[in-house]
Design a binder for these strands. Sequence first.
DNA 1: TGATTTTAGTTGACTTTATCAATCAATATA
DNA 2: TATATTGATTGATAAAGTCAACTAAAATCA
Lengths: 141, 141
Amino acid sequence: MSNHNSLETLFHLVHALKQQMHKQIEALNLTVTPMHVRAITIIAEQTPCTASDVAKFLNRDKAQITRLLSALISENLILKAANEKDKRSQCLLLTEQGECLLKQVKEVEKNIFNKMSKDISEEKLAEFQQMTRLLTGNLME
Amino acid sequence: MSNHNSLETLFHLVHALKQQMHKQIEALNLTVTPMHVRAITIIAEQTPCTASDVAKFLNRDKAQITRLLSALISENLILKAANEKDKRSQCLLLTEQGECLLKQVKEVEKNIFNKMSKDISEEKLAEFQQMTRLLTGNLME
DNA sequence: TGATTTTAGTTGACTTTATCAATCAATATA
DNA sequence: TATATTGATTGATAAAGTCAACTAAAATCA
């Protein structure tokens, strides 16, 4: 496995993923972006969840997260509630509209996952994910 | 392997890759971007190579490729030569400066690859790449 | 052969993603 | 108590990306 080809192979896969996600989200006439989707999912799955949590999970700059969350608030998909533990931060919550969107998005992700993993065994997929995590861990040391 | 986690896992890996690449390119005081690097590598490895070839290889829009190549020409990293087979297109070639950059970039990629694959067998890596290609193929059908 | 369709490359306009720097206030640490 | 760190915001800017429209060359069709 030569180094250039392996890196390029991964870039290709993720690019294909993003294109597929874009296509299916668009087909549902949803106006959210991939990063919106990811943020909403994180907020739905972590409790409590602050901007800092999202930034850490995604390993992104605080500035980007602030803007991303601000957009989601504007779209009435999430809201901020005071964090009793820390006056500097706010807890993020999905609105009803956000919950509704999350359901649609989950469906999209399922479709994409099924398409991607067609004819591939659960075992192989589990191995693949394990390897992905290993590689990521190595890179982040 | 749940669908959301698997997609997220891949995004994390590629994000880590890009960050690592950025860090190492910056450390060499090179002013190129990741896409510059990828384009230069493609041009070096395909003969003949036209803008259309690059766009197809990367599965990107022609507009982006035109701009990318234009930037590389401005930086004197590549040049265009008439394509005798088709008056509409031009063959892309690396300049000496481009060749020099390519060598540095190859070193960066090798470092990243070695870091990423630390303690992982060649066999496992080959399997991983094979799987990556399968998944990409499924998505692009 | 001429008409029509497709393709290579360019430009315009706009969107999405992303980071560094600076700042202020709250919290943690020495 | 003084100092350092952290949460969030804003400014400024860069990189990556796409759709649309266009022109000219090439391919295809009748």
